[in-house]
Nucleic acid binder design. Structure first.
Lengths: 203, 203
DNA sequence: ACCTGAACACCGTTCAAGT
DNA sequence: ACCTGAACACCGTTCAAGT
């Protein structure tokens, strides 16, 4: 029943809020996320968060942005640990993305959520774009290796990105058809490869 | 300042709530959706909605379910108004889906949202699946016409579905890279077709 | 600069009571 | 069966005041 004693100076309240927010997002879902409860859990007054996030949406925006950053890091890491062939790199990237999506379903939902502050959504859009450009870059390498068909790299890359994103977001929201759990991702990757392969002879 | 007079019997409160809810969802976003405000707008007491939806999430679930039903109808309609070739039918379906997604961005977000009542999410999952099966069916027709490569229809169809869904949901959330507005969807459709085309000679 | 405490206007949910 | 009105425990946000 006793509320925890309050230290006047919290080390890094902003970081503490984000960490705790992501934890409850993961454990109890986005509906259960309240600034007041966050403040209580951390041990500051309910008005303290407003010093660091001008409103609740600003905290959600920061959470989403942080998600994109971690996703980007995850991708560069996973690409460093894998061979050079396009098929291998695509496979690794696809599995890493889907892994992130299912391990952070609520966060992914938030990252691509339609409700963001107009100012923050600008920042988020460019974060999303930086991420999609990692796939585009992969396509570029594939083209240089002759393992991906020629053409403007953004135009060849976008369908790859939307395909992976579609699978990842369906997996995260639990809306994948039940048959998919078996070879779903394999089939998706195979289908991307078929669509990416250089044309046999023509032109 | 005056609150509207309250008719004791509302014609169909459930339907009125859903209609109004979708309107404010579209106009002011999901965060602005409150049961109390809905009740005020319609002219019933704030406790009246609970007769029709056991809680707020139940209303959101109903909204999402309704979205899937309309999406399904939209698809059967659009398929009725179009030629028989697979390419033509896929194109029509893709444009209709993306059209629905951008015209009902907040609703699409809700339809594939990760936070749903466990009981309702069952129902939603099967609604999502019925919808994805419309694409699978399209693939089946394409196979019979020899315009889509052979193989288990669900396994050939899933990548098509995830690709379309990925594009639609990115378009809805405004996260498509800016280059995409030009030929984004064309490229995606083309990439699906390339991946769906029957193999040239082998096997 | 950073935080508190009180205050304000809202919520969702429940429940006895009314018709 | 369907709705009301009051009550409860919560919200997010703001703002003077404290250190």
């Amino acid at each position: 029943m006793q509320t925890r004693p309050r230290r006047y100076h919290h080390g890094d309240l902003r970081a503490a809020l984000l960490t705790r927010a992501e934890q409850t997002l993961r454990e109890k879902g986005p509906a259960a996320l309240s600034l007041r409860e966050l403040a209580r859990d951390i041990g500051v007054s309910h008005a303290a968060p407003s010093r660091h996030f001008k409103d609740k949406q600003a905290l959600l925006d920061a959470l989403a942005l942080n998600g994109f950053e971690r996703l980007g890091e995850l991708m560069t890491e996973c690409q460093a640990r894998v061979g050079e062939s396009f098929a291998e790199r695509l496979d690794a990237m696809a599995r890493a993305y889907v892994g992130f999506a299912t391990a952070n379903a609520a966060l992914l939902d938030l990252m691509y959520s339609v409700k963001h502050n107009p100012e923050a959504s600008q920042e988020l859009r460019s974060a999303a774009q930086r991420w999609s450009e990692q796939i585009v870059q992969l396509i570029g390498e594939g083209q240089r290796r002759g393992e991906v068909r020629q053409g403007p790299v953004e135009r060849v890359g976008l369908p790859v990105f939307t395909t992976l994103h579609g699978y990842a977001s369906l997996a995260a929201s639990g809306m994948l058809p039940p048959e998919a759990t078996e070879h779903g991702l394999d089939d998706v990757i195979a289908s991307i490869l078929r669509g990416c392969a250089p044309e046999p002879a023509s032109s």
